[in-house]
Amino acid sequence: MEFLYGALGALFANWLGVLLLAAAAALIVITWNWRIALGLLMLLYLGVASLLVSIHQAPAWVVTGYLVAMGLAVAILALATKNHEPGPSQRQATNWLLRTLILGIVAAAWWFLDPGFAFPQFSRPETDLLLWIGICGLMLLALSNNPTYVGIGLLMWSAPIYAVATVLMPGSGVAQLVGIAALLVALACGYLALLEPVVVRTNPMWWRGRRTTVVHPITPTPLAPPAAVGAITATQLRSPAGERTPAHMEAAK
């Protein structure tokens, strides 16, 4: 296990690896696709975990426990989102270009202002990476009201918390608490994702037609008894004025 984290550390503990992880965090916001986002989230966790082991000598078994917990959290969110029709809030908030611009402006502002801030015991590049992951998480929280994306944002926010807790408070049990909290957050967000009202497109040309929000499970409409079918059809095939037009007669045949 140490060897595995060592190999991953060699990949991520350099400027190219840090840049890769930062790009992964940004892609979660830009692509706005929950499948891609959850996959990239696991990559982020793997990257942060390998940095903790290779640079800060965090115990491999502790970090592995965290990765297992986060894997479960991601799986819970994925299953809940997959088993539910996309709700109205799952549509993209703004378009990808605007989101890229927002992230670009934040990155440029951070670069130019250069507040010179570093977490205790962490190097500047590590701090910048953790803050960037946190900012991307906050961006998701700010741009969406959807339980899945808010869940992803909160899980992204939990990655810096875990890193800071592992390094600043080794052996205090806080890192484990972060994992438990993240699991419960994923469970709660998954539950809310399942209970979000869905949108049913009432018109095949949905971009023209209106949308209906269904707030309860759809139950099949009971079929009318055969004897009543003719009466219903005759009633329905009258024009708004009440008379039967040739087109209606044709349809009735």
């Binding site: 809030s89 977490f119 205790p120 946190g134 929280l141 009201n145 339980p147 808010v150 909160l154 926010w157 939990s158 810096p160 918390i161 800071v164 807790a165 600043l168 408070m169 806080v174 972060v178 909290a181 957050v185 709660a188 967000c189 809310l192 994702a193 209970l195 979000e196 009202p197 269904v214 707030v215 309860h216 499970p217």
Partner: peptide, 29 residues
């Protein structure tokens, strides 16, 4: 268990999780 707008319950999660890293770093200082 109601199928309704989940934004209210969802927002209850934000303040404590946002505050968590600040407390951890503060205790180190």
């Amino acid at each position: 268990g109601k199928v309704t707008d989940p934004s209210g319950p969802l927002r209850t999660l934000l303040p404590p999780l946002l505050a968590a890293p600040l407390f951890i770093i503060a205790v180190w200082y």
